[in-house]
C-alpha cells in the first residue's frame, strides 16, 4: 500500500509540473494585452506603456514563469492585473462557493443515484427498473442550464421560495448560504445523478453475474444478501471513477450554472479573467483546478485500493 501510494504521489508531482508549463505557454500565446484592455479605446500610448510597467509586464516570459512557479511553491499566486488584489484571496473567496456547491451537488446526486441504481439493478426488467432508467434518460438529456432556468421560473419568479440567484455570503448564516446554493445544486445534480444511477445499475448487474457471486449464492446466501455483502463493494470501482470525474467537473465546470444564478464561483472567475486578459489569475486558477483534479484522482486511486485489495499488489 505504501509503495503504491508513493508511486501515485510521484506521478502526481510530475503531472503538476508538466501542467504548469503547458498552462503558462498556452495562456501566454493568446493575443491580447491586459493593459490596453483596462485602458480602453481613448487611452494614449504612453499611458498603456506606464500601466504595463506598473503591472510588471515588461519582463521576459521566462522570468515571469519562474517567478510564478516559485511564488506558488511558497503559496504566493501573485497579484491580479485588473483587480490588484492577491490572487490567492480571490481564489479563496470563490472556492468558498464552488467547493460547497460541488459537495452539495455531489451529495444530492449520490443520495438519488445510489438507491435508484441499486433498486433498478435488483429489480432488473421490472416496471420499477424501466421507469427509473426512463427517468435517468430524461435526466441525461435535459441540459442543466435549461433545467436551471426552469427552476428559477417556478421557484423564484412564481413561488418566490428562493431568490433568483446571487450569494449573500456565509456570514449571513449556514442556512441562508445553503438556501442560496440549493437551486444551483439541484440543477447540477440532476444530470450527474442520472449518469451515476445508470453506472451503478450496470456495474451491479455485471458483478451479480460474476463467479464469486454465484459461489456466494451456492453457499446459501440469498440474492439480496449476496448483493449487499459481495457485489456492491465490487461494483463501486466504476462508480467511484465516475464520482471522481464528476467532482472535478463540478468544481470548475459549473460556469454556466454560475452564470444563470450569478454566483461568484471559480468558473465565472476564470471566464471573466480570460476576457480581461488577467493572465495571472487564469494561470493560477487553472493550475489550482489541475491540482484539484490530480488530488481527486489520487484519492480515488487510493480508494480503489481500499475497496479492492487486488490493486494494492498489482502496481
Amino acid at each position: 500500500m505504501l509503495r503504491y501510494s508513493l508511486k501515485r504521489l510521484l506521478s502526481l508531482g510530475l503531472s503538476l509540473l508538466a501542467a504548469s508549463a503547458v498552462i503558462f505557454l498556452t495562456i501566454e500565446i493568446v493575443p491580447g494585452d491586459p493593459a490596453s484592455y483596462m485602458l480602453g479605446i481613448n487611452a494614449q500610448a504612453d499611458t498603456v506603456a506606464a500601466l504595463r510597467e506598473e503591472l510588471g509586464l515588461n519582463v521576459s516570459a521566462f522570468e515571469r514563469y519562474i517567478s510564478w512557479v516559485g511564488g506558488m511553491l511558497t503559496g504566493d499566486f501573485g497579484t491580479s492585473y485588473t483587480y490588484r488584489t492577491p490572487v490567492v484571496d480571490m481564489i479563496g473567496d470563490r472556492i468558498m462557493i464552488s467547493l460547497p456547491l460541488a459537495i452539495y451537488a455531489l451529495s444530492l446526486s449520490t443520495l438519488i443515484a445510489f438507491p435508484a441504481g441499486i433498486l433498478a439493478a435488483s429489480k432488473r426488467g421490472s416496471v420499477t427498473d424501466v421507469s427509473i432508467m426512463g427517468a435517468t434518460q430524461v435526466g441525461v438529456a435535459i441540459p442543466n442550464f435549461w433545467f436551471a432556468m426552469l427552476l428559477v421560473v417556478v421557484f423564484s419568479i412564481n413561488l418566490r421560495w428562493f431568490s433568483a440567484g446571487g450569494f449573500p455570503g456565509w456570514d449571513k448564516g449556514l442556512i441562508v448560504g445553503l438556501k442560496a446554493l440549493t437551486l444551483p445544486a439541484i440543477s447540477l445534480a440532476l444530470p450527474q445523478a442520472s449518469i451515476l444511477a445508470r453506472v451503478m445499475r450496470s456495474a451491479l448487474i455485471d458483478t451479480m453475474n460474476e463467479d464469486f457471486v454465484r459461489t456466494a449464492r451456492a453457499k446459501g446466501l440469498s440474492k439480496r444478501q449476496a448483493m449487499w455483502r459481495h457485489a456492491l463493494r465490487n461494483a463501486m470501482i466504476p462508480v467511484l471513477t465516475i464520482i471522481g470525474l464528476q467532482f472535478s467537473f463540478l468544481i470548475a465546470g459549473a460556469i454556466i450554472i454560475e452564470n444563470v444564478f450569478f454566483l461568484p464561483g471559480l468558473g465565472r472567475l476564470v471566464f471573466q479573467s480570460i476576457s480581461q486578459r488577467d493572465l495571472i489569475v487564469v494561470e493560477s486558477v487553472v493550475m489550482l483546478l489541475v491540482f484539484a483534479v490530480v488530488i481527486v484522482t489520487f484519492i480515488v486511486d487510493l480508494t480503489y485500493a481500499a475497496v479492492d485489495p487486488r490493486l494494492r499488489g498489482r502496481s
Binding site: M149, V152, V153, S156, I157, R160, S163, A164, G165, G166, N259, V260, F261, F262, P264
Partner: peptide, 18 residues
Amino acid sequence: FKFISDPTAAFAALMAED
C-alpha cells in the same frame, strides 16, 4: 450593486424582485 451579466438572469432577478 449586484453583478448580473447574463441577460436571462437579469430578467429573472427583476421578476423575482431580487
